[in-house]
Nucleic acid binder design. Structure first.
Length: 399
RNA sequence: UCCUCAGUAGCUCAAUUGGCAGAGCAUCCGGCUGUUAACCGGAGGGUUGUAGGUUCGAGUCCUACCUGAGGAGCCA
């Protein structure tokens, strides 16, 4: 007799071929099958306590499509470099299969959340003419003799769209040319960005916590089996529901200083600081009102202290760190122009962006959430490279 | 860009103080058969990342470079 572990993309089952139950040439063909060979099996599924999963297929016929030779990935241990080199095959492994399915569920939840809450999806461009924040972090390309850049955010275009449809979101790939080599960075990643007219900082903090909770609960409901297969402890995820704790940058810094951080007050948190904050609670933590000098030019100043910006980051628990960054945007034309000049940005390139403040401007806010970091957290992975089918990383673009 | 570590068979790894380059898995051949990362017997498989250097002798020590991993910085 022969045992075949077969899969069809939806699951795996053990198929048993008894010598007496099939034609001799069929048994002979099955005998030649190697790991990852492709075939069509016909038979009867029955319960059997000896089979993995409790069920197996008693094979009556089998046709071999192709005999695979020397499949590189064996059931034994492999190193990261080797698996990345064979990413196109690694995707077939049960763990990677489960992660792909969870990623898909997260993306479905993202779309459903906004679609069901009155948001209109407006696609923003990937090719953009000007750099918003300097060119060092952007991939530059030749656009018929002109310089163009791969988008690192759809936000500015989102702001235009939300003045048309009120509540909008975009979801697509974003790019950055940062030479970051950490477990949380990719050169190409997917980001979802909602933008809401008439919303202030408090409104989008609420939106963000509702959104993240919805995603987590949806994965818990729909991808239980996959979470089990990757051995994700779901107890911490079950606690993810609104409201999330909030803390101001200033209070967070006092807390970190009490724990002996060496980061100077007024600068952004270091990796270690973020880890301390994100491990301190069992829900995501919202940190708001960072110093305006370390944040983007378009953020609305805090009316109570203009040294701070009406912005927020959400830090995922269990040490996963920042998954969301957002803010209330400046809606006053004069102030925005002043900030563009302060940041030494080309005013001309922002003419259309300033127009948005010239014609019926309203307060508005939005945020961006990196899909890969959320997948990484929900799946409890130790590196974002496993969250996306074909990661683009510093010094690795194959396969 | 900087710091640390690593690179030996297809894969994962050994190799004592500088002294014969090995094992398991995979592959191939044979046996066995309710197997679960099976078991038993046999076979093939190596320019030890590259280039120099020290030495009677280098996988091992030194120098440079290449590649990878981890971290830092950077990070709408």
């Amino acid at each position: 007799m022969r045992f075949l572990l077969v899969r069809d993309g939806t699951g795996t089952i053990q198929a048993v071929v008894f010598k007496g139950n099939v034609a001799p040439e069929v048994f002979e063909a099955v005998d030649q099958a190697t790991q990852e060979s492709s075939l069509t099996v016909t038979g009867t599924v029955k319960e059997d306590s000896r089979a993995p999963g409790g069920y197996e297929m008693d094979v009556s016929h089998c046709e071999i499509e192709q005999i695979a030779g020397d499949y590189p990935i064996t059931p034994k241990d492999h190193g990261t470099a080797f698996l990345m080199e064979n990413r196109h095959l690694w995707l077939r492994s049960s763990r990677q299969h489960a992660i792909l399915r969870i990623r898909h569920e997260i993306i479905r939840a993202v779309r459903d959340f906004y679609d069901d809450n009155g948001f209109t999806l407006v696609d923003t461009p990937i090719l953009t003419p000007a750099a918003c924040e300097g060119t060092t972090t952007l991939f530059e390309i030749d656009y018929f003799g002109e310089k163009a850049y791969l988008s690192q955010s759809g936000q500015l275009y989102n702001e235009a769209a939300c003045m048309s449809v009120g509540k909008t979101y975009c979801f697509g790939p974003t790019f950055r040319a940062e030479k970051s080599k950490t477990r949380r960075h990719l050169m190409e990643f997917w980001m979802v960005e909602p933008e809401v007219a008439w919303a202030d900082l408090d409104d989008i903090m609420k939106l963000a916590e509702d959104f993240v909770s919805y995603i987590v609960q949806r994965v818990l409901e729909e991808r239980k089996e996959e979470l089990e297969r990757i051995e994700r402890d779901t107890a911490p995820l079950e606690k993810i529901e609104p409201p999330f704790p909030r803390i101001s940058y200033s209070d967070a810094f006092s807390l970190l200083e009490a724990k002996g951080t060496e980061t100077p007050r007024g600068s952004d948190f270091g990796g270690a600081d973020e880890t301390i904050l994100s491990c301190s609670l069992d829900k995501p933590l919202i940190v708001h009102r960072y110093p305006k000098d370390i944040k983007a030019f378009y953020m609305q100043p805090d009316p109570e202290d203009s040294g701070f910006a009406l912005c927020m980051d959400m830090l995922a628990p269990e040490g996963y760190g920042e998954i969301i960054g957002g803010s209330q945007r400046i809606h006053d034309a004069d102030l925005l122009l002043e900030r563009i000049r302060e940041h030494k940005l080309p005013v001309k390139a922002f003419k259309w962006y300033l127009d948005l403040r010239k014609y019926g401007t309203v307060p508005h806010s939005g945020f961006g959430m990196g899909i890969e970091r959320v997948v990484s957290w929900i799946c409890a992975l130790d590196h974002v490279r496993e969250t996306i089918p074909f990661p683009r990383m510093l010094y690795r673009m194959y396969p």
